[in-house]
C-alpha cells in the first residue's frame, strides 16, 4: 500500500532539513552570543528532553510526564557530586559527576520503568505525572541534597567553557549530542528491538502471544528514554550553571509536554521544532507589552489549539503539506496520509 514518495515530496523534507543543518552548523557566526546561548542552545537541550518523550510516545506508545523529573535526577546527581555552592558538594571530577548523573538517572528510569511498565495508556500518563511531582517535592524538601534554593555554581568540564561569555562550545556540544541522539533513535527504529517496541505500541497482547516479554521491552524503552533525558539534564545544568527544584517543577514538566505536542508527538524531529518555536516565542513575548505577564495563557491557548486542530503538531502539518504537494505531482494515486500517525496513536 505504501506509495513511494514523489521527488518533490522528498525535496520538501530534505530541503528544509539541509538548510537547518547548515544554519545550525554556522550558527555562532549568524547569531549574537546571547541568541546562540539563550535561545538556540536552550532549544537544543529542551528538544532533547522533549525527544525522550517523543520517542516513548511515538515508538512505544508510552506518553510519559516523568521526563523532566528524570532529567532533574541526572542534574541533581551531578550537581551534588561535583564542586558547587549548596548540596553535598563532594567535588568529584566533573566528568565523573556527569557519568554518575547519567547512570543514576538511567538506573532510576529502569527501576521506575519496571513498576510503571505494566500500566498502559492514560494510566501510565497519570503514574508518570505523580512520579514527576513527587521527585520535584523530594528535591524541594530534602535540603541536604538541594533544598528550595538549589545548587549554584556547579562545576563543569573545561571543554564546556563559560556558557555566558563563550557560548559556542556548549552550543556545539548540545548540537552534537542532539544529532547523535537523533541518529541513534532513528537507527533504533529499524533494529529488531525498535521494531519489537513498535509492535508493543500497536498491539501488546499479540506481541505477548508471539513470545515477547512486553513489560521487559517497555521497561528497557523507558530506561532508554531516561538516558536521553539524562543528557538533557546534564546539558541544562551546564547551561544554567545551577539547578534548583524550580528547574523541574510542574510548569517545567508541562513545558516539555507542550514542546513535544507542538512539534508533533509522532516524529522525532518534532521535538526540536517544538523546542525552537517555544524558546523563540518565549524570548519574543517577553519583550512586548501586549502579552505582558500572561505568557502562560497564550501558550496554553496555542497548546489547546494544536491539540484540537492538529494532533500531529507542526510536523503533522508539514506532513499534510508534503503529502498534498506530492499527490499533486504524482497524480491521483495516493494512500491515506499520516499512516504512521494513525497507528502511533495510543488509545
Amino acid at each position: 500500500m505504501t506509495r513511494s514518495p514523489h521527488l518533490v515530496e522528498r525535496a520538501l523534507w530534505w530541503g528544509p532539513g539541509i538548510v537547518v543543518v547548515l544554519v545550525l552548523a554556522a550558527a555562532p557566526l549568524l547569531f549574537t552570543d546571547f541568541y546562540l546561548s539563550a535561545v538556540l542552545t536552550k532549544a537544543l537541550w529542551l528538544g532533547l528532553a522533549a525527544v525522550s518523550l517523543t520517542f516513548l510516545a511515538g515508538y512505544v506508545g508510552m506518553v510519559s510526564l516523568g521526563q523532566v523529573a528524570l532529567y532533574g535526577i541526572a542534574g541533581f546527581t551531578m550537581a551534588n557530586l561535583v564542586e558547587a555552592d549548596g548540596g553535598s558538594a563532594i567535588a568529584w571530577n566533573p566528568w565523573l559527576g556527569t557519568l554518575a548523573g547519567i547512570l543514576v538517572c538511567t538506573g532510576v528510569g529502569l527501576l521506575f520503568g519496571a513498576i510503571a511498565s505494566r500500566s498502559y495508556g492514560i494510566y501510565f500518563l497519570m503514574i508518570t505525572l505523580a512520579f514527576g511531582v513527587i521527585v520535584y517535592l523530594f528535591f524541594a524538601q530534602v535540603t541536604q541534597l538541594s533544598g528550595f534554593g538549589g545548587v549554584n555554581n556547579v562545576d563543569r568540564p573545561d571543554i564546556v567553557s563559560n556558557p555566558v561569555s563563550d557560548p559556542a562550545n556548549l552550543f556545539y556540544i548540545a548540537l552534537g549530542t542532539a544529532a547523535a541522539v537523533y541518529v541513534l533513535l532513528r537507527y533504533l527504529g529499524r533494529t529488531p528491538f525498535g521494531l519489537a517496541l513498535q509492535g508493543v505500541r500497536d498491539d501488546p497482547s499479540r506481541m505477548r502471544a508471539l513470545g515477547f516479554n512486553v513489560p521487559l521491552l517497555r521497561m528497557l524503552a523507558f530506561g532508554l528514554g531516561a538516558l536521553v533525558a539524562a543528557f538533557a539534564g546534564i546539558l541544562s545544568v551546564w547551561w544554567n550553571t545551577r539547578i534548583s527544584p524550580g528547574s523541574i517543577d510542574l510548569p517545567r514538566t508541562l513545558d516539555v509536554l507542550i514542546i513535544a505536542v507542538i512539534g508533533g508527538l509522532y516524529r522525532l524531529e518534532g521535538a526540536w521544532v517544538g523546542a525552537i518555536v517555544f524558546t523563540v516565542l518565549d524570548n519574543w513575548t517577553r519583550g512586548i507589552d501586549i502579552v505582558g505577564g500572561r505568557f502562560n495563557t497564550v501558550i496554553g491557548v496555542v497548546f489547546l489549539a494544536i491539540v484540537l486542530l492538529s494532533p500531529g503538531g507542526l510536523m503533522g502539518i508539514w506532513q499534510s503539506i508534503t503529502d498534498f504537494v506530492g499527490r499533486r505531482f504524482a497524480g491521483t494515486g495516493s494512500s491515506p496520509p499520516e499512516a504512521a500517525e494513525e497507528s502511533a496513536h495510543p488509545s
Binding site: L254, L257, N296, I299, G300, L304, V307, L308
Partner: peptide
Amino acid sequence: ITIAISII
C-alpha cells in the same frame, strides 16, 4: 485538552 485548560 484538560492539561491545556488547567494551564490557562
